[in-house]
């Protein structure tokens, strides 16, 4: 980022440190102009955000994956061509898990780069993607990150997937020692394409979100990756987990027209790649909830 950037912070400012934290970084560290558009507050509506971004020449946005999709939809509804009217250089995605395939869709619809920022309310920043767009660089002067086996609590080797555990190094008011994030991931020590030689962190979804069907375990993170790779599938979805299958409610992609039987084709493609017994339901629109997107719901 640079001082001439106009940065929209479309993250919550209330009951969360996210909005304010990013605003401070943009203003104090880079001297950039900030549009504190928020996300879902009393005055914060997606159409107003789009208008501000257009009028004030916004080129960077910090927001969540589901909200950037909502902004795109609102712009479309209001007849605004986002790639024409808003010239974004970068979308920083945070707050919700997001697969690489989903990110690719977001990049395509906004016509710019999109990177992940991994952090938590409790610990602050935990990982930042570089231009390689593959794995997080850890802000090691702020946090000490370890991967443990969630059952035995033993520390795992590089490359082994386990729970991410964080010790904060600078927090004075609320220090945390080996805080269990419930997020899953692994670390790798290989020089990054960008030249950084320090260990990188890779996320693999959340421990509590795992889907269990007929004794098999499926990672929603992986299911999303495979779902988003299917060309017929649009940018919004959620899953209802039943006892013997998962119902996946989707929108179709802009290029896809509905035809009878498309559900079976998408279902078969999804099961092919991740094995999950599923039933596809196509809807015109999944309304934005206004809250943090909950993509996995247990209904039994």
């Amino acid at each position: 980022m640079k001082s001439t950037d106009v940065v929209a912070i479309a993250l919550p400012y209330e009951m969360s440190s996210a909005g304010q934290a990013f605003q401070r970084v943009a203003q104090l560290c880079f001297g950039a102009a900030v549009l504190p558009v928020g996300k879902g507050g009393a005055y914060s509506e997606p159409c107003k955000t789009i208008k501000m971004m257009c009028d004030l020449g916004c080129n960077v946005i910090f927001t969540s994956p589901s909200y950037i999709v909502e902004l795109m939809k609102v712009a479309k509804r209001d007849g605004i061509d986002i790639t024409e009217k808003i010239h974004l250089d970068m979308i920083w995605l945070t707050g919700e898990g997001c697969s690489d395939a989903f990110r690719k869709k977001i990049k395509k619809m906004w016509g710019c780069d999109a990177r992940f920022y991994y952090g938590s309310l409790e610990c602050g920043a935990l990982g930042i993607e570089c231009e390689a767009g593959c794995g997080y660089h850890i802000p090691i002067s702020h946090v000490y990150v370890e991967i443990i086996d969630p059952d035995t609590k033993e520390k795992l080797e590089d490359g082994e997937i386990g729970e991410i555990v964080v010790t904060t190094l600078l927090k004075e008011g609320t220090p945390l020692i080996r805080y269990r994030t419930q997020d899953l991931g692994y670390m790798e020590r290989m020089e990054c394409e960008c030249g950084i030689e320090l260990p990188k962190l890779y996320l693999r979804g959340r421990r509590a979100d795992q889907i269990y069907i007929a004794g098999e375990e499926y990672a929603p993170f992986y299911v999303e990756e495979m779902l988003m790779r299917i060309e017929e599938v649009g940018e919004n979805y959620y899953m209802n987990v039943h006892e013997d299958h998962v119902e996946v409610v989707i929108e179709l992609s802009a290029e896809t027209k509905y035809y009878e039987g498309i559900e079976e084709i998408i279902s078969s493609k999804l099961e092919f790649s991740c094995g999950i017994p599923n039933n596809i339901v196509v809807v015109d629109e999944i309304p934005y909830s206004g809250k943090k997107m909950k993509r996995v719901n247990y209904v039994y």
Binding site: S268, E271, F272
Partner: peptide, 14 residues
């Protein structure tokens, strides 16, 4: 040819 067509062996058509 699942590798060519990418379908599930548990699908209705199969």
């Amino acid at each position: 040819a699942p590798i060519v067509h990418g379908f599930s062996l548990a699908s209705k058509t199969v």
